[in-house]
């Protein structure tokens, strides 16, 4: 069997008294698409942010390709973060740079890529998300769907091995959700390893390899989409699905 890309062992996280994650142990294999679903406030974002150490776990282990991130120095963490692209609900594009500059910044400053190759690669990525004609636009002038596609291109520019998505379509007008999901689906097809937090059940059903159902600080169910949606095991999941599928 192939070795997992991400291994999480007894991962726990508290904010003061509030224990948000309660000893989670799971793993992500290369090429897998994991869709994390669950009620809001259940700790999905916190979990995702612990994977690339934007949030420091209170205890437990997060390993990327066998290297434990929690015991690593800052430099090591920085270099492993390159390999985990992240896409946020609020896009977080750099407003003071053009679309092209947004994409080129990290490759040039972190990897030391020269300007010409960074520009070339940025155009390729923009082409791929269908926005090459917006290369010189500033983020303010983009629609939400366009901004999120640029954010995906920006993350891809570092050639990550895993992509983390935290509700990438939740801030979008309904008519723009499709264009972003399409890009994500393409990525999945190309074999990208992905962990996606979303409420888009259609996407979950058609793209996910595994569904992780998360509530109350741990992963309550880990199943294939067919199994999970047809036969949810826990009361928590049944309750959640009944509300969401209404």
């Amino acid at each position: 069997m192939t070795k997992p890309v991400i291994e999480v062992e007894k991962l726990a996280k508290s904010f003061g008294e509030n224990q948000v994650l309660k000893e989670i142990t799971e793993q992500v294999n290369p090429g897998q698409v994991i869709v994390v679903i669950g009620p809001s406030g259940g700790g999905k974002s916190t979990f995702l942010r612990c994977l690339n150490l934007l949030e420091t776990p209170t205890s437990g282990k997060v390993a990327f390709e066998g290297h434990d991130l929690t015991t690593m120095d800052t430099k090591g963490v920085n270099s492993l973060r390159e390999k985990m692209g992240m896409v946020f609900q609020g896009f977080n594009l750099f407003p003071n740079m053009t679309v092209l500059e947004n994409i080129k910044l990290a490759p040039m400053k972190v990897k030391g890529t020269d300007d010409a190759s960074a520009t070339k690669r940025a155009h390729e990525l923009l082409e791929r998300v269908g926005l090459d004609d917006h290369a010189d636009a500033f983020p303010d002038s983009l629609s939400g769907g366009q901004a999120q596609r640029v954010a995906i291109a920006r993350a891809l520019a570092m050639d990550p091995e895993v992509m983390l998505f935290d509700e990438p379509t939740s801030a979008l007008d309904p008519e723009m959700v499709g264009e972003v999901l399409n890009v994500m689906q393409e990525l999945a097809k190309e074999g990208m390893t992905m962990v996606v937090v979303t409420h888009e059940m259609g996407f979950a059903k058609s793209v996910a390899d595994r569904i992780w159902f998360m509530a109350d600080g741990y992963i309550q169910e880990n199943n294939t989409p067919d199994e999970f949606f047809a036969h949810p095991e826990t009361e928590r999941a049944k309750d959640f699905l009944s509300k969401i599928l209404m």
Partner: peptide, 11 residues
């Protein structure tokens, strides 16, 4: 903004 930059591997 900081989170986006850090997630890209920037120090």
């Amino acid at each position: 903004q900081t989170e986006a930059a850090r997630s890209l591997g920037m120090s």
